[in-house]
Design a binder for these strands. Structure first.
Lengths: 200, 200
DNA sequence: AAATGAACAAAAAGTGATTATTGTTTATTG
DNA sequence: CAATAAACAATAATCACTTTTTGTTCATTT
């Protein structure tokens, strides 16, 4: 069997994308539980054996489907963020984009069909850690632009941004209601640009 | 039937606490699914009818069990926080206490037996909103003590504190590893007491 | 080389009859 | 009164059984 390294998805291989396309279509329509490898093969007009050549098992296929979705989300968001000038604006738009993704497509469908599956996935830190590499460049840019203090620890800001993004997508309301773009931006501006505590 | 107002748990009624005690014992041992009202009655040495007098249905009983646990947690934490001087220290200890609660008792047991149930519960914003009333007094204290700027919006700080608490309990590692008390405190100090962004 | 299709045992999911549990009611007890 | 115990239909869980699916192998095809 070909030595597959951990989770390396080769999107340039047309067979891989065909499998992922078919798989995503099935999962979105019927949910993970009700999707069989045979069904995926049938929808993708390929053999069951081919799927198993590229994905060790059903779990790997499902993970591949979500991994690709997430990467597509990050790429799409990355493009959108180029238009935003400040870190606060970038974070605002990311949260709005994240919420949009949760309302439509495969996430919304699964949340309706198999809420437990979605819940377990969203509580898995690995799901978010994949996007940990996304923010540091933007944090650095903000520091170079003088928006974020250059003295502050980049890793800390990155972690904070990631935590806020996740929290704000999952919970539009926690202490206060942060549903509109306006409320969201004001909140984030407050957190990043108002002196919260007294300095040393 | 007695006019039960929404979710008002009367802990001074010994029958209520007996039901909750028995219920919690059962849920911790067997999980929610495998716990029957008859079993709770047997463990608590009372009649099934008595349970239904105090709780509309099984769901209400389960919610009551977790509500009481949460209130006990908040009371216990509140007492502990009186010893802490700063908001950062309070938040640090709250997170550590929260993580402890997740590792032992009914939460740890359920996470093992019925992870989907736990996941769904933890993704319900209502679960956290109950503790929204917990933080404002501490935020105000910190403002009066000069730790947090008096100019800053109290509701925003409360929301931020709540989001950070939830996020840090759920995900000890997101961007960076925040597992030790030391790392946690340094991180929170950074967030609250280092100038993140440039002010207006 | 990679994809296919068929074959296979082991595991998982579906099925339908049986049993247990739920939520409600009612008469009885302390 | 509040708690109890028994009775009840409706719902949900369980069990033994059948069918499907999984993951693997291998000879054949493209």
């Amino acid at each position: 069997m070909p030595d597959k390294q951990f989770n390396a998805l080769n999107y340039s291989d047309p067979m891989v994308t065909r499998i992922l396309d078919a798989g995503e279509q099935c999962v979105q329509r019927f949910g993970i539980r009700r999707t069989s490898m045979g069904e995926v093969a049938r929808v993708g007009r390929l053999s069951r054996g081919s799927i198993y050549r590229h994905f060790n098992d059903k779990e790997a296929l499902v993970e591949g489907i979500f991994r690709r979705r997430q990467e597509m989300f990050l790429n799409r968001t990355e493009a959108q963020l180029l238009k935003e000038k400040t870190l606060v604006d970038k974070l605002t738009e990311s949260v709005l984009a994240g919420r949009r993704d949760m309302r439509e497509g495969i996430f919304a469908a699964l949340a309706e069909i198999e809420p437990e599956t979605m819940a377990v996935m969203f509580l898995d830190a690995r799901f978010y850690q994949r996007s940990a590499a996304f923010w540091p460049p933007h944090v650095r840019m903000a520091q170079q632009a003088g928006e974020i203090s250059a003295a502050v620890n980049e890793a800390v800001v990155t972690d904070l941004v990631l935590r806020l993004a996740v929290s704000l997508v999952m919970f539009p309301k926690m202490g206060i209601e942060l549903k509109t773009r306006r409320a969201l931006r004001d909140y984030l501006y407050h957190v990043f640009h108002r002196e919260l505590g007294v300095h040393d």
